[in-house]
Design a protein around this nucleic acid. Structure first.
Lengths: 102, 102
DNA sequence: ATTTCATATGAAACCTTATTCATATGTCTT
DNA sequence: AAGACATATGAATAAGGTTTCATATGAAAT
């Protein structure tokens, strides 16, 4: 995937969704929902190698889904909760509605 | 992509998002937001060939993003507005916030 | 300024998804 | 039941995304 360097990494809906259409990236989101973390912390918690995480985080950041603050050598990534939490809530509700039987 | 035949086509967020991560599918959503339509109508309006649309609609239906009612020979597809409209609204807002300069 | 720790980046290999097109299925009309 | 119209489906190929791994960059400590 190629990421737009400009401030906003998407012009159309599908580019935003594409960013979320990946298991590693959604795992990162779930983790950051609980607690902001450095790449190393995410790597340990999720058992995902560093380079994969960096790639994934770059993608998420390109659409402003996450951001980070530098803290010493580490980058502490945090979730854009304003956008993402209500979004996940909608999906939970949707799932609930159509997957009652599971 | 393979679609789950069971009622609910996704177990994890990224599968739901993956479904929306495609320009044809988001175009269909935009079209259906305005007006429910048959495949032929969509084909004309969006200038997308029938077979592509059928594939795309099958994907969207697998996650209950659209549904249809049979009407004669045609299938009238309609959007699951309950889920999708608020979702798009969140993205619009997000975009607005980060793309002011564009 | 060198080393160490933390993270990012690039490119090839690999894997997944989309497109295409021929054909099948389904529904109505006659 | 045959024909016409509408949509779906399958499979090969094309297109696109992800993983991997080697290397680069950056920040702090010595």
């Amino acid at each position: 995937m190629k990421y737009n360097a400009s401030k906003c990494g998407f012009k159309s809906y599908h580019v935003f969704f594409r960013n979320l259409a990946n298991p590693i990236r959604t795992k990162i989101i779930s983790a950051l929902k609980e607690k902001q973390s450095s790449v190393t912390e995410l790597a340990e918690k999720l058992k995902i190698e560093q380079s994969k995480l960096s790639h994934a985080l770059a993608a998420l950041k390109s659409c402003n889904i996450v951001d980070y603050k530098q803290k010493g050598k580490s980058r502490i990534y945090f979730l854009n909760k304003t956008t993402i939490l209500p979004m996940l809530k909608i999906i939970d509700k949707h799932k609930c509605k159509y997957c009652k039987h599971k």
